[in-house]
């Protein structure tokens, strides 16, 4: 079922290039808010210097030192943009998510009116859902603190560095798993909102939790498959980008193109995740419904309906 969901996710993305374009444009524009000032800063600092030409070979430590030291005000101003850009992008991607889930759920192809109206319609609920997830993060932090406490109880107030190191590694690993689960809770909560029109965000979050934990191997399995694909892309990207590190025009433009293709791939995987999760949700929900019917009418499930349950459903 997980592989089928993944396949459905990719299939669902087919023909949705405009959806991908919207996501890419949003990512590009927000990153550009950070890159444009940097381009100006580098241009004024090294535009007419031999060091400017050497930037095509890579950034050396001495250049970086002088940039930070002698352009500290510009650097500070640039970094002061980082927080608003990040928060802005998070909110905007939350906004886009409503449109993307709706378009993928409807399965009728991208339509601007459908996408933007759905994005606007669900934004409030999605934002509330995200805020409801904050207590889960608080629980996570408390859990991590409890691990510290356990380590202190087990190893005393003066644990060996190895104990501290591995407990931190354990905490990082558990935090990663917890964040993954929270993101799944939120994802399936959003799917619940989109597919049922649920207006209560807390209820949607609870549904998301119920669904994720009730189908843990499938929901987590899908995300792990996508993470593997993402890692694979990174493994491909790194050697090629190193190979394209030559300081001439063709290599530089090829590298820039490769970078954007890599970003595009990551965004495609994000949309694939949405599509795959929708498929999983749909299939499992339908199975649940059938099972419920079966309980009401014992022996009533025929071969046809079993086959139907295996097929992704359209609304």
């Amino acid at each position: 079922m997980v592989f089928r969901a993944l396949r459905d996710g990719f299939n669902g993305l087919r023909g949705q290039w405009r959806l991908l374009l919207v996501y890419f444009a949003a990512n590009f524009c927000f990153a550009l808010l950070m890159a444009w000032p940097m381009n100006s800063l580098l241009g004024s600092f090294a535009g007419y210097r031999v060091e400017g030409a050497r930037l095509a070979e890579g950034i050396d430590f001495e250049f970086l030192t002088e940039l930070m030291e002698y352009e500290s005000q510009a650097w500070t101003a640039l970094m002061s943009l980082a927080a608003p850009v990040t928060v802005g992008y998070l909110l905007f991607s939350l906004f886009l998510c409503g449109g993307a889930l709706t378009v993928l759920w409807e399965g009728r192809g991208y339509s601007a009116s459908l996408f933007w109206s759905a994005a606007a319609r669900h934004f409030g609920a999605f934002l509330r859902l995200a805020l409801w997830a904050l207590p889960l993060l608080a629980v996570l932090l408390i859990g991590l603190a409890l691990i510290n406490l356990l380590v202190e109880l087990a190893a005393g107030g003066d644990p060996y560095e190895s104990t501290t190191f591995w407990s931190v590694a354990l905490q990082a690993g558990l935090a990663g798993i917890a964040l993954l689960l929270i993101s799944l809770f939120v994802d399936y909560g959003r799917i619940h909102i989109v597919t049922t029109g649920e207006s209560k965000s807390i209820r949607a979050l609870l549904e998301g939790i119920r669904f994720t934990l009730g189908n843990l191997s499938r929901t987590v399995g899908l995300v792990i498959l996508l993470l593997l694909l993402s890692g694979l892309a990174a493994l491909l990207y790194l050697p090629i980008s190193n190979w394209l590190n030559a300081p001439h025009s063709l290599a530089v433009w090829s590298l820039i193109l490769l970078q954007q293709l890599y970003v595009l791939w990551r965004l495609a995987l994000r949309l694939t995740r949405y599509g795959g999760e929708l498929s999983l949700f749909r299939t499992i929900s339908r199975q649940d419904a059938k099972n419920a019917e079966k309980k009401e009418e014992p022996g009533a499930v025929d071969q046809e309906s079993r086959l139907e349950a295996d097929q992704p459903l359209r609304p």
Binding site: A31, A35, M38, G47, G52, A53, I59, T86, L90, I256
Partner: peptide, 27 residues
């Protein structure tokens, strides 16, 4: 001559990092 190529490459790399960073944070 203005050394555009190097500046562009460094800026593009900076932008790429930001693109990946933002994409990873988004949920």
């Amino acid at each position: 001559q203005r050394q555009s190529l190097g500046v562009r490459k460094a800026s593009a790399r900076w932008m790429f990092w930001w693109q990946v960073f933002l994409e990873m944070l988004a949920f």
